[in-house]
């Protein structure tokens, strides 16, 4: 395996980690807002808070890891993406910052508030939507080179159906992932009211998820035939992912084996995410940038990989400890102790 392939696999894995944990977080904010607005905050807020509080900072680090690693392994991405993404990423950053900081302010300093909960919930949907534009841009067709500098064509971007179908998919996926996960988490907390409510949401969002996923594949066909063909060449991965999706919803429907259901959920998205990634190979920004020509020098690459291995040896046990104490600890999940500082 070449060094650049190792690099991109590691980064893609971390991005996947971010997508999943952040989806749970963003969706939870939305459901919390929903329950506050419908005066049923007693049902959901507790469970959501208990899950989110100890892990929110860790979620953010996954994102930081991804973009720092990207610039490290593929420094040219800083030039291409840095130049074109100023506006879209700045908007995501502002939303992300307000949402993240106010989560802490509200949980520890200020009392709950309806307007605030709504803004928090909506921000959680706008963030994935605005980040998802980066995927759209990477497909090519929206960037032109002017005097050797890349420039983003905003008009083409915002009038393309591909953009909007990716935006829709990202939002629906967030709501679905979060609902399925929280069904399981609330079930473990023996909070059956919350679990049943989340189950309903998960079922509601499953159909839109399937429709928007299929819709995107169709969009691709019109947008960029080359990329469409690459997607078709890994059709079997997408197919397995689809099967896992059906099994997940079936378990959900039958109220059976929620633990297995969450594992299947993660596997379904992992397969789809990696299938998409493989179909993108070798382009980072179609057609200007591939992982080969943007790769850093060999010395730096080896140094980064060594640091990654050492770092992982430190992190994986720590992460396991974190999950053991908060996600897999029965007493904590059920809220038996309040041990907050």
């Amino acid at each position: 395996m070449s060094l650049e392939l190792i690099g991109i696999c590691v980064l893609w894995a971390f991005l996947f980690g971010y997508v999943i944990i952040a989806s749970i977080d963003f969706g939870a904010g939305f459901y919390n807002a929903y329950s506050v607005l419908t005066n049923r905050s007693d049902v959901l807020s507790d469970v959501i808070k208990r899950y989110l509080s100890p892990v929110w900072e860790v979620t953010n680090v996954f994102l930081v890891f991804f973009f720092v690693g990207m610039v490290g392994f593929f420094p040219q991405t800083a030039f291409y993406y840095g130049t074109i993404l100023l506006v879209p990423v700045s908007i995501s950053l502002i939303l992300l910052s307000i949402r993240g900081a106010y989560y802490a302010f509200e949980s520890y300093g200020m009392a709950g508030h309806k307007g605030y909960a709504t803004a928090y919930g909506l921000a959680g949907l706008l963030i994935p939507a605005s980040f998802s534009v980066v995927f759209t841009i990477s497909e090519g067709g929206f960037v032109e080179m002017v005097n050797n500098y890349p420039q983003l064509n905003y008009k083409a971007l915002f009038t393309s159906p591909l953009t909007w179908s990716i935006v829709v998919l990202s939002i629906v996926a967030v709501l679905y992932i979060s609902a399925v996960f929280l069904t399981w988490y609330a079930h473990k907390a023996r909070d059956h009211k919350a679990s049943n409510l989340m189950r309903k949401f998960a079922l509601i969002w499953s159909a839109p998820l399937a429709i928007s996923a299929v819709g995107i594949i169709i969009e691709f066909r019109g947008h960029n035939p080359f990329r469409f063909e690459k997607m078709v060449s890994v059709w079997w991965l997408f197919a397995i992912s689809a099967i896992l999706f059906f099994v997940t919803t079936w378990l959900l429907w039958m109220k059976r084996n929620y633990g297995m259901m969450v594992i299947l959920l993660f596997s379904q998205f992992a397969l789809a995410f990696f299938a998409y990634g493989i179909s993108h190979y070798p382009y980072l920004l179609y057609p200007y940038l591939t992982i080969h020509d943007s790769f850093t020098n060999k010395e730096m690459a080896i140094a980064l990989i060594i640091v990654f291995i050492l770092g992982a040896a430190l992190l994986i046990p720590s992460l396991i400890l974190l999950f053991k104490l908060f996600v897999f600890n029965k007493d904590y999940v059920r809220g038996i102790h309040d041990e907050h500082v």
């Binding site: 860790v58 680090v61 610039v71 490290g72 730096m300 640091v307 990654f308 430190l314 104490l325």
Partner: peptide, 30 residues
Amino acid sequence: QVAGQLIALPLFMETFAFFFEAIFLGIYLY
């Protein structure tokens, strides 16, 4: 683009420091 080729290493190490801090801070506080 230039600095990435020369000095990405400490920046990358920093993310591990953040990770480490964030995980144990969560545990400590709760």
